[in-house]
Design a binder for these strands. Structure first.
Length: 275
DNA sequence: ACGAGAACCTGTTTGC
DNA sequence: TGCAAACAGGTTCTCG
């Protein structure tokens, strides 16, 4: 589901509506999502105010009172919505967690496929958390650059597509934006990661940054399972150059976009523009 | 150690 | 039209 731009869009939608609010009660409608909820999940959250809503890679981090952090990953189909505002169908059957707020609002986490998951982290131990500790750098952060990428890809024998999806290197890219970034950089998804250096990694780093920034600016893409927290739908998917465009004309050279499968996932690319 | 593939789920789209 | 197969934005685990 959501990749970094969508999660960032959701974060921006939730932040003003949650910051300063107190969670009066948490309704847990099942014991697990992808993984079991941590012990005493609802009881530990109950009564605490929400101080911040942050993002790390594709994770949402809700900073709660007294140093507790609620970590939430949306998997493929997870989403946040407020009761009564929309998508009752989604929430009705798959509203797994309901946060009752002190202003009467009910924030609902729904997730049909249940690939999402949540965790609670005590202050100061974020670095040890099993979900966060192995994440690579943020692609929109200061460290990320051509030279950094060249160094990170050195010795990697996997296709560049797979390397960019590896969250331990760069954290936040998913299938859509990897395809889009490789197209923008003019690089074949099949090219081995360790054959990239110099100008190519520079172009790739620039492409990654540009495609993510464009997507965030557009409010995130809205494939069928995603709605921004404020109910608005993103529209960046109308601008995809290659993703989900198998057989259609390349916008640059007019040749047909191809679809191949790499490590079990669809890759879309232009065989002429991408080397 | 590292990379590819399977597994985890349900809903929607595609193809016969 | 109906039904089965294929496919979907992610992560973790296992196996070679």
């Amino acid at each position: 589901m959501p990749e970094l731009p969508e999660v960032e869009t959701i974060r921006r939608g939730l932040e003003p509506r949650l910051t300063g609010r107190r969670i009066l009660r948490v309704e847990l409608n099942r014991p697990d999502l992808r993984f079991p909820f941590p012990a005493n999940f609802a009881r530990r959250i109950k009564g605490r105010a929400i101080l911040s809503v942050e993002r790390r890679a594709k994770y949402l981090l809700f900073g709660l009172e007294n140093g507790l952090v609620l970590l939430s990953h949306l998997g493929m189909s997870g989403r946040y919505g407020f009761a009564g505002e929309q998508q009752e169908r989604h929430e009705g059957k798959h509203g797994h967690v309901v946060f009752h707020l002190d202003n009467g609002a009910k924030l609902i986490y729904s997730d049909p496929r249940r690939f999402g998951f949540m965790d609670l982290i005590e202050a100061g131990s974020q670095a040890d958390n099993r979900f966060l500790r192995d994440l690579g750098i943020e692609p929109l952060g200061n460290q990320f650059s051509g030279p950094w990428l060249a160094q990170a890809l050195r010795g990697r024998r996997s296709p560049i597509k797979a390397a960019l999806l590896d969250q331990r290197i760069v954290a936040g890219l998913g299938n859509i934006y990897v395809c889009e970034a490789l197209f923008r950089a003019g690089l074949s998804p099949r090219r081995l990661a360790n054959t990239l250096a110099g100008a190519r990694t520079e172009r790739l780093a620039d492409a990654v940054r540009a495609v993510l920034e464009a997507a965030i600016a557009a409010g995130g893409s809205s494939l069928r399972d995603f709605a921004a927290a404020d109910g608005g739908l993103g529209y960046f998917q109308h601008g995809f150059d290659v993703y989900d465009r198998e057989g259609e004309a390349c916008k640059r050279c007019n040749k047909k976009i191809q679809r191949i499968v790499q490590s079990g996932r669809s890759t879309f690319f232009c065989p002429k523009c991408q080397r």
